[in-house]
Amino acid sequence: MDKKTPVISCRNVWKLFGPDPKQFLATLKPDASYENIRAQGYIAGVHNVSVDVGRGEMLVIMGLSGSGKSTLVRCMGRLHEVTGGEVLIEGEDIGKLDEDALINLRRRKMGMVFQSFGLLPHRTVLENVAFPLEMRGQDRHERRARALEVIELVGLAGREDYFPRELSGGQQQRVGIARSLAIEPDIWFLDEPFSALDPLIRREMQDEFLRLQNMLEKTIVFITHDFDEALRLADRIAIMKDGAIEQCDKPDQIVLNPATSYVAKFTEEIDKARVVHAGVLARPVNGIEVTGEPVSEASTIQSLARLLISDRRKLIPVAGKSGELVGVMDRQEALDVLLGSGS
């Protein structure tokens, strides 16, 4: 397969809820608004969404509850049938697969983690984790070995024989994560995995998740309503409202250049300095003379605060990973990000 083919590709995906959605969509004007559709007795869960996720990329879908983010991710795994458009997984239209092929695809390629864990209450940790392996008919010993391996990975070794009700929320979600990883999926869906947990545990789980992601490098669609979480984790963020994607971009871009007023309102409260990297502010050198030590393009403006305030240079050089010069950053511009620009 072509390396450039996106792993997940949504093309004009619609998901309508109502009495006869297919028929309705066929007669719908392409520019009909959410309100417009609702007035006719239908709800647009997903409203003409097109988005690609590349290999190894983490796309965070973000929005308030009811914005359609969960519906979208369920369309990607075909837990929901789309009303219109298509979802391609590695170039193949998932909507056209028959039941066997779909089950097969899920058994080989997909893992999913749920907000309220979705653990089977009558099974032990081990049996829950081994469940997908059992479903695809792996033999007892193999699946036990593999399950123990992932349980170890998520840090639950020693609790294999516990039942979900005997575990804390955080531990239960670790089981959920372990289960979703058991089949070594290429594609990993996480539907608000940490939002049912209290803040301290959430933080810890996010760290844990980043550790796993660095190790495993999967293609990930991650859903959250917590912007901070999105910013911490995302390669790209898609912000949804009323079923449609308002903006889909790198975190810095979303913060710096919100596409719509809705996104702007979202980002208003965010401490931009924590999100924006020096690399984003870097402009081409274009023969300007640069002086002094460069800063790394990967460092956030916040981490450069001390330097920005004490340094007297107007333009500060920005260096890439290997130390090569990638551009210059206007100190004033960086200070505006740090301190807010309004004044």
Partner: peptide, 13 residues
């Protein structure tokens, strides 16, 4: 959630 977890685990009907 439990139902979808089952489906995503590749359960047949």
């Amino acid at each position: 959630d439990v139902v979808e977890a089952g489906k995503m685990s590749g359960c047949t009907r």
